[in-house]
């Protein structure tokens, strides 16, 4: 049948060149590139701090305090005569650690809960979502303060508290996305092809809500970094004697007027990485979507 071959030939010409195979979206978008670069820098700084820092971390140096950036101390020194660049490098570790663990906890619990809620009609789904609503009623900070009160303030407690408080956000967004997927005909097609519910969840639901989850993760990552800073600022997260960007901000508050760079530098680091993760998340979502590859 000649017309049929014509139709097939059209498919090739319709969308330009054939896909290169391998990764679904071939075209790297600007968000992904810029966001990825920023994320790479932050991760690079954190890794660098394990092998090299200008001075030993947290060490009190025999120099003038409150130095502004200079040749000796690129980012200056703080009240306790410590090198700010060293603290930024070491602090990147804490910040990333908190972000990854908090988002990891939230996504690992929240996404399956959301899918479960969407795929099980009746009381189970309702129960999951109502439990979720209860959790949602507690702001992340309040939960972290409660945890800190119970278990003492530490980075680990802070990140787990932030993670638990972020579960509902993941569960909600996953559920709404999954409900949409469950209504599509390709899920009915999968059922009639004999796919089990677990198979449908893994093959159809997860890939199709991945975009939503990635964006949520990048937003939550940013929130977690900020929450860690806030907790440290309140004196409930990372304890004294351990570097974190939030901790640095906290300690800079008393000298905001006399030495503003002590607040501005960690502040800028936080703002830049938040921006980086958001861009990276958006870019990743688009890159993973095969439908956007021809645009």
């Amino acid at each position: 049948m000649s017309e049929v071959q014509g139709a097939a030939a059209d498919a090739v010409t319709d969308s330009g060149q054939a896909p290169a195979g391998g990764s679904p979206g071939r075209r790297l978008n600007p968000s992904l590139l810029v966001g990825g670069a920023i994320v790479a820098v932050v991760v690079g700084l954190a890794l660098l701090s394990y092998v090299w820092t200008p001075y030993a971390p947290m060490r009190v140096l025999p120099v003038e305090p409150y130095q502004t950036p200079n040749a000796e101390h690129w980012l200056g020194t703080d009240r306790l005569r410590r090198d700010v660049l060293t603290q930024i490098l070491v602090g990147a570790r804490t910040t990333l650690f908190v972000g990854f663990v908090a988002v990891g906890v939230a996504a690992l619990v929240g996404v399956p809960l959301g899918i479960l809620a969407a795929m099980s009609p009746g009381w189970l789904g309702q129960l999951v979502m109502r439990g979720n609503d209860v959790l949602l009623a507690f702001p992340a900070l309040l939960l972290a303060i409660m945890f800190a009160a119970l278990y003492g303030g530490s980075t680990r407690v802070a990140m787990i508290a932030i993670g638990i408080a972020t579960i509902p956000a993941f569960a909600r967004i996953t559920r709404s996305g999954a409900l949409g997927v469950m209504r599509t005909e390709y899920v009915v097609a999968a059922r009639s092809a004999g796919r089990s519910p677990l198979g449908i969840a893994v093959r159809h639901v997860v890939p199709n809500v991945a975009g939503l989850v990635i964006v949520q993760a990048s937003v939550s990552f940013a929130i977690a970094i900020l929450a860690e800073a806030a907790l440290a600022y309140l004196g409930l997260g990372t304890p004294t004697g351990q570097a974190s960007w939030g901790r640095m901000l906290y300690e800079a508050q008393t000298t905001l007027r006399s030495a503003p760079h002590l607040a501005l530098i960690p502040g800028a680091a936080i703002a830049l990485s938040v921006l980086g993760f958001n861009l990276f998340g958006d870019g990743l979502r688009d890159w993973l979507d095969p439908r956007l590859e021809d645009r």
Binding site: S2, E3, G6, A7, A9, D10, D14
Partner: peptide, 9 residues
């Protein structure tokens, strides 16, 4: 009877 192919974008 058919028209071969499809309407191009």
């Amino acid at each position: 009877p058919t028209i071969p192919g499809t309407v191009p974008p």
